[in-house]
Write a protein that binds this DNA or RNA. Structure first.
Lengths: 146, 146
DNA sequence: GTAATTGCAAATGGTTTGCAGCATC
DNA sequence: GATGCTGCAAACCATTTGCAATTAC
């Protein structure tokens, strides 16, 4: 059993435990989110699900993504320009490196961030619960293209 | 001449140099942005400008804020939940600490970030141009309120 | 005087919502 | 069989846009 398969099973159990129903659409959306490391948008998920279940509606994709976000199994990368992306692999805050050319998103390793959170809490008196760190630039491919 | 007054003059010169006109509404919006350290929203700016110029429209506030953003004199803190905030004091990327209770935003000092940018560039091959770092939590006042 | 800006109202577009019919459990 | 889910269409709402009248220069 692969890591993705195991993760899918875990999430299914979590849903069942909360008496949410496992519909074919939900299963398909969950699978796409967990198996992709492209940080897909709702639109991309929609397109993929439709290939399997042509009657699927955008509303269902939104509802399912929101559900998975609420049970903390998907991280939403909200962009105010309306191209939100979703991470079903690492549903906890972590940094992203985002290409402003092709919109590719990577997950770099960066251990120092938790220490920064603690430092911010100490300096400001805030109780820090979460964070968001994005680096913007051009990926190697887009640098060549000009 | 205070620091804000100096900054306002600088931005006015920049606008004149680009043949943008200094209308009373623009001047008022600019002044609000530079003199506030509350990271005001468009709605808040609108309310304040209206006190001086009652016929001012929201569209004008949007247009002016966009203009100031484009000449790199205002930093937009876009939030995908539709409560964008604007920083007219430090129009370059810098971290923010955001209260999820009352929406208060602070600007903590954090020198280590440029080094992180370079580290990301090295690790990923991206050419990093910009970044965004937000910490979310409860400010001291909201911690007491519960 | 000319060209830019304002302010109104309408359009936009991603996301959410109401609800009737359907599927899961 | 009861309840939750789907899919449709309409509603939402911050922001943008078109345009005629106004104003800065």
């Amino acid at each position: 059993m692969s890591a993705s398969e195991r993760r899918i099973q875990e999430i299914l159990e979590k849903l069942k435990g909360k008496y949410f129903r496992i519909t074919p659409q939900r299963y398909a959306i969950l699978k796409i989110l967990v198996e992709s490391d492209e940080h897909p948008s709702v639109e991309q998920i929609y397109k993929e699900v439709k290939a399997q279940f042509p009657t699927t509606s955008l509303a269902t994709v939104y509802k399912t993504v929101t559900l998975l976000k609420e049970i903390n199994e998907v991280l939403e990368l909200g962009f105010h320009d309306g191209n939100n992306r979703y991470d079903g692999n690492r549903p906890y805050p972590h940094p992203h490196v985002i290409c402003t050319g092709c919109r590719k998103i990577m997950d770099p390793e960066l251990a120092a961030l938790d220490e920064l959170s603690r430092e911010m809490a100490r300096k400001t008196g805030y109780k820090i619960n979460s964070h968001r760190l994005d680096f913007f630039g051009l990926c190697p491919a887009c640098q060549k293209t000009g």
